[in-house]
């Protein structure tokens, strides 16, 4: 008995009010092909592999492909107690039995890198800039829980960068406990100098003039902290830890890890974060190290425009107090 024979038909696929929503849901779907890895790869090893790969310039020129690999990478993981303690104490969180959302990000980051380091990934892994990150946490992930992370890429688009065009991509990672979706992250990366023809072109984002909010705190950035974050996150991209490398990419000095800066801003909110939320981060300008940044925590009733502006939460802003320059604009919207 085939249930298909009884199906009424595809009547719900007619264009309707939910078309847009369904369309985006469809592109969110996990690719059909899934490669299961024994573990989340160690980011350092992925970097080294990328650096050592002969015959393929990975820094500035684009690879041979112009489309995203239709594959997802999957690995089981458990959150590491010691690493969580170190992470929490570094960014200013309490080291509980459950992880802050940024720790889940660093715990699955190796999967993202492994995907970007593949030969069929169209953008150069090193030198890509993390421009935005959106994490939806349905419940906190616990230490020792068996989790499954699945990462895939979507939405390869062109976007104006300075006078030229760059290419941007979303890396989606789902973390599940059994079947239960616990955490979902979308990291948006930009390859500034890679241009692929034929992609959808995004409008140049509007940047309203930045008006600094009332600061509620701040911190000094140091190379030591960057190195500590590199150690605990595994993100040893030399742009964060070596001045020479940073200069190679056109920065005056090393730059702080974006997710480190964002996590410190989130930690400033403390326990009001709650357990279920959407944490959206936009990285406006890199934080140069050493230096000092200001953070502002503001309560808002309509914090997340992506959700129609109905959700209450907090705006968390990080900026350079001397130059009045925005570094990170982030929001925490309660579920």
């Amino acid at each position: 008995m085939s249930r298909d024979g009884e199906w009424i038909g595809d009547w719900l696929d007619e264009p309707g009010a939910e078309t847009a929503e369904r369309a985006s849901a469809a592109s969110d779907a996990v690719p059909e092909r899934i490669e299961t890895l024994a573990a989340v790869p160690n980011p350092g090893a992925v970097y080294l592999g990328a650096l050592g790969r002969a015959g393929r310039a990975i820094v500035t020129t684009s690879s041979l492909t112009t489309s995203l690999p239709d594959v997802a990478l999957r690995a089981d993981l458990t959150l590491d107690r010691e690493r969580l303690d170190a992470y929490a104490h570094l960014v200013g969180e309490r080291a509980l039995d459950t992880a802050p959302p940024g720790f889940v990000h660093v715990s699955v980051f190796g999967l993202q890198l492994a995907l970007m380091g593949r030969g069929d990934f169209p953008l150069p892994m090193l030198g890509m800039v993390h421009v935005a990150n959106r994490i939806e946490q349905l419940r906190p992930a616990g230490v020792g829980e068996t989790l499954t992370a699945t990462t895939w890429a979507r939405r390869l688009v062109s976007r104006p960068v300075g006078d030229g065009m760059g290419t941007q991509v979303d890396l989606v990672t789902e973390v599940r406990a059994g079947g239960e979706l616990v955490w979902q992250g979308v990291s948006t990366y930009l390859a500034r100098s890679t241009q692929i023809s034929g992609l959808t072109v995004l409008d140049r984002p509007e940047h309203p003039e930045f008006v600094a909010p009332t600061p509620t705190g701040g911190w000094d950035t140091t190379l030591r902290l960057s190195k500590d974050y590199a150690a605990v996150s595994g993100d040893r991209n030399p742009i964060h830890t070596s001045r020479l490398a940073a200069r190679g990419f056109g920065y005056r000095s090393t730059i702080a890890h974006g997710m480190d800066t964002a996590a410190r801003a989130l930690a400033a909110l403390g326990p009001r974060r709650g357990d279920a939320f959407t944490w959206s981060v936009e990285f406006a300008a890199p934080v140069l190290v050493p230096g000092r940044v200001a953070v502002g925590v503001e309560r808002r009733d309509d914090v997340d425009p992506a959700d129609g502006g109905t959700r209450a939460g907090y705006a968390l802003t990080v900026w350079d107090p001397r130059r009045g320059r925005l570094h990170v604009a982030s929001t925490l919207a309660h579920a």
Binding site: M1, E32, I34, R176
Partner: peptide
């Protein structure tokens, strides 16, 4: 359960189909 094998096979080949049918 045999009636659902088609669906199952499809989903299992699709990496165990952990995505939900409809949200």
């Amino acid at each position: 359960l045999r009636g659902v094998t088609k669906q199952l096979n499809r989903s299992i080949t699709q990496a165990l189909g952990l995505t939900e049918a409809v949200t």
